[in-house]
Design a protein around this nucleic acid. Structure first.
Lengths: 295, 295
DNA sequence: CCACATCCATTCCATCAGGTTATGGAAGCA
DNA sequence: TGCTTCCATAACCTGATGGAATGGATGTGG
């Protein structure tokens, strides 16, 4: 009669979406998998949770009772796991720092060096995040701090200190007609296909498509990627262009790709983030201070 | 990074017992299974939770953090499942009643008939419990009410109304030297091997061994059984004798077994139990009233 | 001092649960 | 009638899980 947490997550997703098909997309599994999971949950509880119809999945009274509790249970559960991880890394004297490829730059080694100088015996683990998680593991509590690009979705629930800004440039295939220009106006890129981050990154994706600075002009998506290497390949292969912070030109120089300054887009901001629970954590505070003093 | 509830239960058991071996016994699985589960939990969290030694399993700091939260999480989880089931059975107009074989007697059909007369459209599901759960499913929230033998472990957390008492008799193999006596004094049975309920039923098991009424005389266990049929077989096969309520003599008459009155033991009490959450539930209250008025 | 008991870890194996793809069936819509 | 949109089912494959037997380390008692 034991029910897996995964089943509860599935249930919550289906209850929210009102549809197996849509929930399946959101959870990145096939629809039949959810059919089975929901039925399994119903069997283990001995209670029907949904009424099936062509219109979708509608909650029964019992389903509503469970749906009302599910978010709280899941949140408590995740909080307990986070707390456990935090305890562990403190006990081991390890500071876990997530970073987005594009947010780690020349300052990073200085920051880490300064931190370890101030905290002998401590180790800094730098954990590389994919673009599908713009919080670089902070949102899930996998890290104690993170070097990020602002803004990102979920920012309200975390603490963030802005460290620096950089102009945004554009990455182009070298064969691109604009590739030999010294500087490019953003409006000239409006009709170009763009290489974008996965859709679930929401606001972050929009920011890098500069969706707000197109004066209503629609975005064309040429490819969706999740990782710097794929990003570079997609651009080199001519699937599209992409905005990128200036430092990317130095860190990800590659044959087949050129980087050019862009006018008419706001600069990118780099920040360091941490969880509100760590406001009083001297180690995290010190790491943030090192970030501030070394950028 | 999703962690199964089962792993948390395992973890809680191991943390409490301080030993894989003992926890394995308690959970009715093999010790290697727990070795694997604990390791899996540690891997998924990326955090060591125990320090292994020949003395057993000792919690690390992170392990203590998780152990502190685990009971609450598990309790919330179980409460949510209970609530969901309760909602379902109310919506379906089904009253689920658990019963111990020995607690259902001649009154039961009258109770159910009276209840369905007062609640047309409702159905009563009678669910038979094994002796390893003297709460007949109430403790786990599987039923809305239960017909029980008092006292039983966990009684404090439930509501109970006593319905009637019955003298306790003894069930003997027909070949037993005492089998042709009209009545037996309990002290004559002190040295007999007894057929007992599983050890995890604690107080309930002790009650049926009349452990308190032996004036310190130790109990001899001849067999452990979980089900009326096994119980009858064990007695008929001469593995031991057992106390039983008088009505058992009528419900479980069988060749090879005789029932005899016993003097010197307290009578057995039958009760109806329900969950405190249902104090305000008119259907459950009515069922309890039907029990009271029909015994 | 050696046999023994007590722990946890490891290995091997059988089983089952979970996922995927492909397909079916029902119902609204044009 | 054909198309789309739901969920259910079937067939298949992989990997996780649990059990039995065994190993290794470490105290303990005669």
């Amino acid at each position: 009669m034991d029910v897996d947490i995964r089943l509860l997550r599935t249930f919550a997703a289906v209850a929210e979406e009102g549809s197996l098909t849509r929930a399946a997309e959101r959870l990145f599994v096939s629809q039949p998998a959810l059919t089975k999971q929901i039925r399994q949950l119903e069997n283990r509880l001995g209670v029907p949770l949904f009424v099936r119809s062509r219109a979708g999945m509608t909650l029964t009274a019992a389903g509503r009772a469970l749906a009302a509790r599910a978010p709280g249970l899941l949140a408590d559960w995740d909080a307990a796991l986070r707390e456990t991880r935090r305890t562990a890394s403190r006990a081991e004297r390890v500071l876990r720092v997530g970073y987005l490829a594009s947010a780690a730059n020349e300052a990073t080694p200085r920051i880490v060096a300064e931190f370890t100088r101030r905290h002998p015996g401590w180790r800094v683990d730098m954990l590389h995040a994919t673009w599908s998680d713009p919080t670089a593991g902070l949102g899930a509590g996998d890290v104690d701090a993170a070097l990020l690009r602002l803004p990102f979705p979920g920012q309200e629930r975390l603490r963030v200190a802005e460290l620096s800004t950089e102009p945004r440039w554009v990455a182009l295939p070298s064969a691109h007609p604009l590739a030999d220009r010294a500087e490019i106006a953003f409006r000239e890129l409006w009709d170009e296909p763009f290489v974008a981050a996965p859709a679930e990154t929401g606001r972050w994706r929009d920011y890098w498509l500069a969706a707000d600075e197109r004066e209503g002009h629609p975005v064309r998506i040429g490819a969706v990627v999740d990782h710097p290497d794929d990003w570079l390949s997609a651009i080199a292969n001519g699937y599209g262009v992409a905005l990128a912070p200036e430092s990317t030109a130095r860190f990800y120089a590659r044959p087949g790709i050129v980087y050019r300054p862009v006018s008419g887009v706001s600069p990118s901001r780099i920040g360091v983030g941490w969880a509100p629970e760590d406001d009083g954590n001297p180690v995290v505070r010190d790491f943030v201070r090192c970030c501030r003093e070394n950028t």
